[in-house]
Simulated assay, not measured.
Amino acid sequence: MKNYLKYSLLGLFTLTLVVVVFSVWVIGQLKSSGAYKVATEQLTSDDVILEATGGVKEYGWYVSGFIRQNSQLDSANLLLTVYGYDKNIKILCLMGKNENRQWALKDHRLL
């Protein structure tokens, strides 16, 4: 019985470690993407965001969403947390590529 408990805890620890490492890797991939960089650049100077937050201090470490790169239609939906001087908000960014194949912020929604 002791071995069963020991191996169960070891298996649970290993599975947890794999999930955490994979999650950190995915977040890192999203944050290093061109879509994320363009979104944060454009949101930093957006009047609606500046009014809602009192000015952008920084963006949260956790990013969720997806980036779909297809030969025809590249798109990305990113959920960001913006830490402002007055208030923190969450923003859903809808990204796409323009005619020059560069990422562009198509729309954003305050959540």
Score class of each variant (00 low, 15 high):
Y4M: 12
Y4N: 11
L12T: 14
L12A: 14
T14C: 13
L15C: 08
L15K: 05
T16W: 06
L17I: 08
V18N: 08
V19K: 13
V20R: 04
V21I: 15
F22C: 07
F22S: 09
S23N: 13
S23I: 08
V24K: 14
W25K: 04
V26G: 06
G28L: 04
G28Q: 06
L30H: 02
K31L: 01
S32M: 04
G34H: 08
A35K: 07
V38A: 05
A39C: 03
T40M: 03
T40C: 06
T40G: 03
E41P: 00
E41N: 12
E41Q: 13
Q42M: 06
Q42G: 00
Q42T: 11
Q42N: 09
S45P: 00
S45I: 07
D47N: 10
L50F: 02
E51S: 14
E51A: 12
A52F: 00
T53R: 01
G54I: 03
G54F: 00
G55T: 07
G55F: 05
V56M: 03
K57L: 12
E58W: 01
G60R: 04
W61I: 03
W61G: 00
Y62A: 04
S64I: 08
S64P: 00
G65R: 10
F66R: 07
F66D: 11
F66K: 13
I67S: 03
Q69P: 00
N70L: 08
S71Q: 06
S71I: 13
Q72S: 12
L73W: 11
L73C: 02
S75R: 08
A76F: 06
L79C: 10
L80I: 06
T81M: 02
V82F: 02
G84V: 01
D86N: 13
D86R: 12
I89Q: 08
I89C: 10
K90Y: 13
I91T: 12
C93R: 08
C93G: 03
L94I: 15
L94S: 14
M95G: 12
K97R: 14
K97N: 04
K97M: 07
K97W: 09
N98P: 10
N100Q: 14
N100D: 15
R101G: 05
A104G: 08
A104I: 15
A104L: 12
L105F: 11
L105G: 11
K106A: 03
D107V: 07
R109F: 14
L110S: 06
